[in-house]
């Protein structure tokens, strides 16, 4: 395993309310995710699921009014900048940087202060773990969808996150691939004992995650239509 085994703490969402104007995107949401568990946030598109993830990351636009707390291993994240929160996130697209090779993309995730030789070594190990052996020097654009998704996960894990956020990362994959990648991601999340929050509108994702499911309703329908 490439992730250093440190004691992981739970991620807690406590009484989270997100508002924009008089539109309520999420009201008094409380979830606790112990290490190694995957909690699914289910809801149709437009229900503000991704907004919640943005808020957890710390990249939410200031127009939103937010109350409630996000804690990781007991520490409040509010005061931390996005880059200091140690959260890994996977989006719908793999977002591998197109100007870097596959191995450089993964090395991007590694902490600094590791020699180039050692970096290469660790990346090779991670690639092998993801069944991407021999693709180190490839242009990421030449990878298949499933390969990109796995490479993106490895890049995230190499940064040694303390929690994992999944923003519908499987929705763009072919149906045949989806289940395989899903298992791959979930297995790694559990093995690394990461508290994981999955956001999706696909019930198959939620069932496959095997953890608690929290339903988010379509927010503020009646109050405002713009």
């Amino acid at each position: 395993m490439i992730v250093t085994q440190q004691t992981m703490g739970a991620m807690e969402i406590a009484g989270l309310t997100v508002r924009i104007g008089n539109r309520v995107l999420c009201e008094n949401l409380s979830v606790s995710i112990p290490p190694g568990e995957i909690v699914t946030l289910m809801g149709p598109s437009g229900s503000g699921k991704s907004t919640i993830l943005s808020h957890i990351c710390g990249t939410l636009d200031r127009q939103f009014e937010v109350s409630g707390a996000i804690r990781l291993a007991g520490m409040d994240l509010a005061a931390l900048r996005p880059e200091d929160r140690k959260l890994g996130i996977l989006f719908q697209e793999a977002l591998l940087f197109p100007h870097l090779s596959v191995w450089e993309n993964l090395a991007f995730g590694l902490p600094s202060g590791i020699s180039r030789k050692e970096r290469r070594h660790r990346v090779e190990a991670a690639l092998a773990d993801a069944e991407l052996d021999g693709l180190a020097d490839r242009d990421p654009a030449t990878l298949s969808g499933g390969q990109k998704a796995r490479a993106a996960l490895m890049r995230t894990l190499l940064a040694e996150p303390r929690a994992l956020l999944l923003d519908e990362p499987f929705s763009r994959l072919d149906a045949a691939l989806r289940d395989k990648i899903r298992q791959f991601v979930f297995d790694h999340a559990r093995k690394a004992r990461l508290p994981t929050l999955l956001v999706t509108h696909d019930i198959a994702d939620a069932q496959s995650a095997g953890g608690p499911i929290v339903e988010v309703e379509v927010a503020g329908q009646a109050s405002q239509q713009s």
């Binding site: 990351c57 990249t59 996005p82 959260l87 940087f97 995230t156």
Partner: peptide, 28 residues
Amino acid sequence: VREREIVTTARTLGYGPATAWLKCVLPL
């Protein structure tokens, strides 16, 4: 270019905004 997503990805990997921009957006 999809600047916002690229920068967000880099920031969640622990990069400061300007460093993220210079490393990932400038080359594009």
